[in-house]
């Protein structure tokens, strides 16, 4: 289990299991995260990282176990807790034939944001997409779509930000923008969980790191100041079962 550091408990998962038939995607997983923490989860393909993130976001029900955000259990019959979670997934959740601005406006209305115009302008400025606000999403490059998705995920100012492979397919310039935005998320107020294959990026951002294998956290801890090369060999040891 990953333990609690100081600060208000924001994200808490107990006894999470998720099966796909006989396959266990997430098994016996507990997690507690406090305000301001940045957890990076790394692991091989099929380790259940994306499934875990889907459960934490409320997009998927666990087979057993529960998730609490700011003390409130993710009750699928209620909707208030969804204001607290923002997710950036493999998919952008954007409508291809709508402009970036229209997409953000649509999602902003779903979240009941009052100062929507200002909020959209500010988020687009932050991800460097102000000039493409009126472009249809389908006409954007992958990197730009990813930035638009990031603006969507952060539009409602969530307490918990979940990032699933955010660097996937980004060019270096887009990666820099993303890294800057993620750095800003480490403002002490937000709790961030990032799933990635990129050990270097993962290590750079994290205040805590976990290695997930076969649906479980096989290793977790803090690696402040550690070199990513050292961590890489440690990672391979854990994944191959040598630790």
């Amino acid at each position: 289990m990953i333990g609690v550091s100081s600060g208000r408990l924001v994200l808490e998962a107990k006894g999470l299991h998720r099966n796909y038939g006989s396959i266990v995607a997430v098994g016996a997983l507990d997690l507690s995260m406090s305000e301001g923490e940045f957890l990076t989860i790394v692991g091989p393909n099929g380790a259940g990282k994306s499934t875990l993130l889907s459960i934490l976001s409320g997009a998927m029900r666990p087979t057993t176990g529960s998730v609490r955000v700011c003390g409130e259990e993710l009750d699928f019959a209620r909707y208030e807790w969804r204001h607290r979670i923002g997710m950036l997934s493999h998919q952008g959740f954007l409508y291809d034939r709508m402009t970036v601005e229209e997409n953000l406006s649509f999602y902003g209305k779903l979240f009941g944001i009052s100062d929507l115009e200002d909020r959209i302008a500010s988020r687009l400025r932050r991800v460097g997409l102000s000039e493409r606000a009126r472009s249809e999403v389908r006409k954007l490059s992958h990197g730009m779509r990813q930035r638009a998705s990031l603006a969507r995920a952060l539009l409602h100012d969530p307490d918990v930000v979940l990032l699933d492979e955010p660097y996937s397919g980004l060019d270096p310039a887009a990666a820099v923008v993303l890294r800057d935005v993620l750095e800003e998320l480490k403002d002490g107020r937000r709790t961030v969980v990032m799933v990635t294959h990129n050990l270097r990026e993962g290590l750079e951002m994290a205040t805590r790191i976990a290695i997930q294998v076969g649906g479980r956290f096989e290793w977790e801890g803090s690696l402040k100041g550690a070199l990513w090369k050292d961590f890489e060999s440690h990672y391979h040891s854990v994944v191959e079962g040598r630790v």
């Binding site: 969804r82 998919q91 959740f93 954007l94 409508y95 999602y107 779903l110 969507r152």
Partner: peptide, 9 residues
């Protein structure tokens, strides 16, 4: 692009 997932969340 998973927009249904987006509105469901």
């Amino acid at each position: 692009d998973g927009a249904l997932q987006g509105i469901l969340m």
